[in-house]
Design a binder for these strands. Structure first.
Lengths: 155, 155
DNA sequence: TCTGAAAGGGTTGATGG
DNA sequence: CCATCAACCCTTTCAGA
């Protein structure tokens, strides 16, 4: 991955905040004309620095009012099991995040659900589809203080 | 918040995946001409259904190779303390998520860091700035299986 | 609410500094 | 690596259904 200069980083900063800003306006913000600005953006898209552009939607507007984190501990830990878990969780749209963690549990899953019925269904799915799920522990979110994917660009 | 019909939901589905798609192309995808399509998008922006558009940036490209979750348990639980925690964590750019959870701990914090030195710094900040932080427990992510904010629109 | 058309503005690529 | 410019495409608005 190539180096990012100050202009690249400024572009990333702006596009992380306003992903639909026009190249013309973006160019003004960073003090460049439109063509080289657009070229830098394209280069970063090609290089995988910018991985995509996404509208963010209010979970409440879609009725997903329940946010839960689920810790899952597997009893067996073969490579096969990890692969299967990956595949299963990737295709559950209510699962927004899944990470393999070190420490006292194996997976940390974040899911947005419409209510307790969907929650019960999720847990059932996980424990049934996973070949050797042993323990699971859930945390219900009472208040969301912050949720973003925006990274500081530093400089 | 108003009802979302099938067309609205289709628009949300597409814009969550491709947030910079032109209104012309979006209109083709959903089988409408450009004007009413743009109008629907504007309406959903006004109503807070669409909360923004954001470029997503590769954490590796910015050197943020360490992803950690930190559980924080407060010893005192006055309203004052919660307010202070909120304010502090909101202004730490390395903190991507923070949630108040029920269960055996109080806050769940997700942070992307450049390494152990920044990790030490974060923990120091948290435990120093928080008036009454008692326990903290960290989980280092070994593998990221999924990370998205995209919600299923159902229908 | 939609379609279609027209005017204004944005994007893109060639050219030259 | 940047600015300029022209051709093309997109956005926005408005009339009409």
């Amino acid at each position: 991955m190539p180096e990012l200069d100050r202009i690249d980083r400024k572009i990333l900063d702006v596009l992380q905040r306003q992903g639909r800003m026009s190249m013309t306006e973006l160019a003004e913000h960073i003090g460049l004309s439109a063509s080289p600005c657009a070229e830098r953006v394209k280069r970063m898209e090609r290089d995988g620095v910018i991985t995509g552009y996404h509208a963010h939607v209010s979970p409440e507007a879609l009725g997903r009012t329940l946010l839960v984190f689920v810790e899952i501990k597997l009893s067996a830990k073969s490579g096969d099991v990890f692969d299967k878990v990956r595949k299963e969780l990737l295709h559950m749209p209510e699962v927004l995040e899944c990470h393999l963690v070190s420490g006292s549990f194996d997976y940390l899953v974040k899911a947005r659900l419409s209510g307790m019925s969907e929650y019960r269904h999720l847990l059932g799915d996980i424990l049934k589809k996973l070949p050797v799920a042993a323990e699971s522990h859930s945390y219900v979110v009472m208040e969301e203080i912050k949720e973003t994917l925006m990274l500081a660009v530093d400089r």
